[in-house]
Design a binder for these strands. Structure first.
Ligand SMILES: [Zn+2]
Ligand SMILES: [Zn+2]
Ligand SMILES: [Zn+2]
Ligand SMILES: [Zn+2]
Lengths: 131, 131
DNA sequence: ACCTTGTTGAGAACGATTCCCGAAATCAGG
DNA sequence: CCTGATTTCGGGAATCGTTCTCAACAAGGT
């Protein structure tokens, strides 16, 4: 049975307080900085639980580090992420879902899953760079 | 200037001899097994060069390991990958390209890139599981 | 052949994540 | 409110993929 500990709640809240993707280590550091005595391993466990339950989005960045973000919209969706500041927009596109399912089916693949992420430089960051 | 060493050629050929995604370590092991004295670091370097030049596809799996595959079709494309045996189908879908570009533009994001991969269990593997 | 300079490779270093395991906490049941 | 069974915690060690270091080496131009 799954128990409710203040640690899990704390991670959930700490993650919810941010609106961009953070790594487990970053989150742990900021929680510690805020006075919480929570352990790093626990943050890892809580985050992977949240991701499994669909309450958080997981994202594997190019540097081999997993980043997490509290889910804003319910249900399946994708992300448009600023590669510079991490600002994130949630995207829902049924076309993509159908396309992915269709591609899998067309080649006889079962239980299709898909990874769809769009990266770019957001307007704010583009301005800073250009300035 | 970029030099041509037998090591780079060997990696290119070893990768081309396979038709699924392999990790740097797997490729290194199989090259060693085949009698090559090539070093692990060199395989890593060669693979990341190949990926940069667009001669190989790179893919970050869920376990945090990078896998590579010789590019069959030229130009930009995506993959449909069997999560069990690694069998891979290259996919080209202009719809997706347009959609990704459109999503980025609609939110003011510049220099869009995207990650689009579809995973599933191929017919052969589904049969084995079911049997 | 000779020199310049990019490349190699063994092992050390690194960094993110997971494992270990004794201690502490949760919660159902009494 | 106790109690006991069982889960979770957490600090540090272990793991594991990848990158770095640096002395020896080799590709190519002249
Ligand atoms: Zn930005
Ligand atoms: Zn989707
Ligand atoms: Zn398969
Ligand atoms: Zn594409």
């Amino acid at each position: 049975m799954k128990r409710n500990t203040w640690q899990r709640t704390a991670v959930r809240e700490a993650l919810g307080a941010r609106d961009d993707f953070v790594s487990a280590q970053q989150l742990h550091a900021s929680m510690k900085a805020g006075g919480s005595p929570i352990g790093l391993a626990t943050v890892y466990r809580a985050l992977s639980d949240l991701a499994e339950e669909g309450d958080a989005d997981a994202l594997r960045a190019g540097d081999g580090e997993s980043r997490y973000r509290a889910c804003v919209s319910a249900g399946h969706h994708h992300h448009l992420i600023c590669r510079s500041c991490g600002r994130t927009v949630e995207i829902q596109a049924d076309d993509i879902e159908h396309w992915a399912a269709g591609v899998a089916a067309a080649h006889g693949f079962r239980d299709p899953q898909h990874v769809v992420d769009v990266f770019g430089t957001c307007a704010a960051c583009a301005e800073v760079d250009g300035a």
